[in-house]
Design a protein around this nucleic acid. Sequence first.
DNA 1: CCTATGACCGAAC
DNA 2: GGTTCGGCCATAG
Length: 106
Amino acid sequence: MLKQHQHRPLQTSKQSLLINSMTNFTDKVRGVVKNIPKGSVMTYKEVATHAGHPKAARAVANTMAKNFDVKIPCHRVIRSDGGLGGYNRGGEKKKRAILKSEGVTL
DNA sequence: CCTATGACCGAAC
DNA sequence: GGTTCGGCCATAG
């Protein structure tokens, strides 16, 4: 018999990813962060784990740094070692203020 | 493919 | 308490 399309159509990797709207990783990260309830925080590492890449905390930070969507509460993502991490919408100071206003005890 | 970058992590000092 | 260093990993060029 003719084995027609056994495998994937494979269409130049990168494009197929872009068609999906974004890279799986970035998209997943955004989804996770968007889901963090008010009043709680999650570390970069935790977000990475939830996204399926436990060791990609740094990459998560990268994703956050590039993100400017107000729909994503990136201020609720903090460091694992107690630090706040950065914030591209006003710096750590602003970040802490927002978290405090949400009832998060640092 | 290879290099550089970064809102990280954890251990070491 | 702090700083430094190596590892880690996705993205951009």
